[in-house]
Structure formats: structure tokens, C-alpha cells
Amino acid sequence: MRVFVAGGSGVLGRRLVPQLVARGHQVTATTTSTSKLGFVEQLGADGVVMDGLDPLSVGEAVAAARPDVIVHQMTGISMAHAGKPDLKHFDRWSLPTIRLRTEGTDHLLAAAEATGVPHFVAQGYANWNGIREGGWVKTEEDPLDLHEKTPAHPAMAALRHVEDAVTSAGGAVMRYGAFYGPGATDDQVVLVRKRQFPLVGNGTGYASWIHLDDAASATVLAIEQKARGVFNIVDDDPAPAGEWLPHLAACAGAKRPVRIPPWLARLLAGQVVVTMMTEGRGFSNAKAKRELGWEPRYPSWRQGFKEGLA
């Protein structure tokens, strides 16, 4: 197939494009900078510069590529786009990604409709943001938590927009867990080694992780099978912060993280961080396994962290 990967030079795109190429697909991958065109071409794709927030730029790029499927992997969470991570002011820090998940999604869907692209796959998110009711592990049937009246709300509402818009168009949304793998957790590991990544309270909040290569392989299956609907793309091992953070520190050769009370974390890092570490919900990958026939190469972050940081 001809596959158009919007955001092909990003942290996931650079793992996805080679997998698509290896399976015989013709890939056009976008980047926001001419300086990255050579890198995209080294991955095996035809590179194109595109501004995901400019409907004319998006329309021209899609029309020229004539794809069979559009894959939306555009985010703005890199240092170049969003600056240093600032979870205390989550709404400000995530604004570039919010716009790409609202305006950018709409521009890509409009371009797909205008040029007759029959299938669409988009990036979603499933880490700590399941509804904070009932059990600690959520399925696709459980709603995402919109975190209303908190700085996380605009970003959560943007995720809802992606899911509503893409599924209404007959596409698939891949709710990826927290990424780890080449280039995905470098900033977190630096903080862990400096003992600047504390554990909040009892660390009871759950998270779900996914290795970049596993996220890419699930996406390839969704593309090839013309999947529809929402899929949690996470590993087999949702776990509380009290388990994964000390393990990450041990794998990084760092001392055990310090523990701070929620009231202090709220002052230092904001409510979103406290919620993540004390109330977050993990996710189940049963649907993706069942309907896509997907099996993660790294079934647990326990193995993945150890291998990646050895």
C-alpha cells in the first residue's frame, strides 16, 4: 500500500516507517523541517515538509502522495516544540500537541475526504488516564478520564476529539501506553539518576507502558487489516508507580527514588502528577491481541527497561 505517515520523523514514526518499508509498503513521511528530510529518506520513505496546522500544506502533501491510508503520528511534545516538560502547567506545555490532535486531525481528515483516502489510523493515549472509578485496569469500553477543572483537561479533551472524529470517519485510534525505547525516556532517566523523580505517596496509581517497536508493530497490523475502532496498545503488565519507578531506577543504575507526600508533590509539581502517581489507571491489551492478532515483543516493562538500559 501507499502509506502516508504524518509525523514520520517523530519518536514513534522513526520506528514505524522502517517496519512499513520492510513489509513492502511505499511510505511518504512528513517532517516539519527540511533538515530532517535526509533522515526520513534514510528510513526508506519519501520525505516531505508539511505543517500539520496549515490546511493548505496538509492538503497539498496528501494529494501529492495519493495514499491508501493516512497515519496520524503528529505530536508537539519534543523539546523543540514544547520546551522542557512542565506537568504543573500541563495545559500550557501540551498546547502544541493539543492543536495537532484537534486542528491537525481535522486537516488530515479533510484531506483524506477530498482525495478519497479510504482508511485512517491515528495516535491516541492510554497510560494513567482511564476513568478513576472501579478497578485499576481499563478496557476500550471504559471512558477516558477528562480530568475536568485541572490543567490536564484540554489535553484529555483533545484525545476525546481524536477518538470521536477518527472513529466517525471509519478509522482506527491506537491508544498507546507510555513510550519507552530509543529516545523515548532519556529525559526521565536523567531525572531518575539525579534523584529528581520522586515517588508520590504510596505510588498506588497505575500506568501502562509500551516499547516503541511494539507500538509500531501494532500500528502496522491496524494499517494492513484496515482496522476500525479504538485499541489499547499497551504491554501485558499494567503496574503501580510503586513498582515501575524503583525498577526503572535500578535498571538505570540509580539509587532508589525518594518518596514525598502528596501535599508536597502538589506544591512542587502540581495536581496532575499527584493524580498520575496515586490514582492513575492502567489498561488492558486484550482487544488488540484478539482482533489484530498482535503480540508484543516486550510483554513487560520489567524486561524492556532492563534490556534498554543495560
Rank of each mutant, 00 (worst) to 15 (best):
A215S: 10
H119L: 00
P154D: 05
Y176H: 14
L191H: 11
F120C: 05
Q123R: 09
A215P: 12
H211D: 05
S217I: 00
Q123D: 05
I233T: 08
T185K: 14
E140Q: 11
Q225D: 15
A126Q: 09
T219D: 07
L146D: 05
F197Y: 14
A126L: 05
R228M: 09
A114H: 06
N127C: 11
K138N: 12
L109S: 03
H119D: 08
D164K: 15
V234L: 03
D186T: 15
H153E: 11
H161R: 12
N129V: 02
V189E: 00
G201I: 02
A222K: 07
I223T: 07
K138M: 07
Y206N: 02
N129T: 10
P143V: 01
P143Q: 04
G177R: 12
A172M: 07
H107Q: 10
V166E: 09
V117H: 01
R228T: 14
V121F: 02
H107V: 01
L191N: 12
V162E: 10
E113A: 13
G181E: 11
M156C: 13
V234Q: 07
H119Q: 04
G203Q: 03
A158N: 14
T204P: 00
A158V: 15
H211G: 04
E141W: 09
D186K: 15
M156E: 10
D164R: 15
K226W: 03
R228K: 13
E224A: 13
V173T: 06
P151M: 11
E224P: 04
L159M: 14
K138L: 05
R195N: 15
V117N: 00
N202W: 09
R193P: 00
P151C: 09
A152F: 04
T105V: 15
G201T: 12
L146N: 08
H107M: 04
S217F: 03
D106W: 05
Y125A: 01
T115F: 07
V137T: 12
V192I: 14
N232V: 09
Q196M: 10
P154N: 10
G124V: 02
P151W: 06
V189C: 02
Y180D: 04
Y176W: 12
L159W: 13
L221W: 10
F231K: 10
P151S: 05
A157W: 13
Y176R: 12
A111C: 06
A111Q: 01
V117D: 00
G205P: 00
R228S: 13
A222W: 11
H119W: 04
A227I: 04
L221K: 13
P143K: 03
D164Y: 14
I131R: 10
V234T: 14
R160F: 08
R228E: 12
V117S: 01
A114L: 09
A216E: 08
P198S: 01
W209F: 13
T185H: 14
G181F: 08
E224S: 12
V230Y: 05
W128I: 05
T167I: 06
M174K: 07
P198A: 00
I233F: 10
G177S: 09
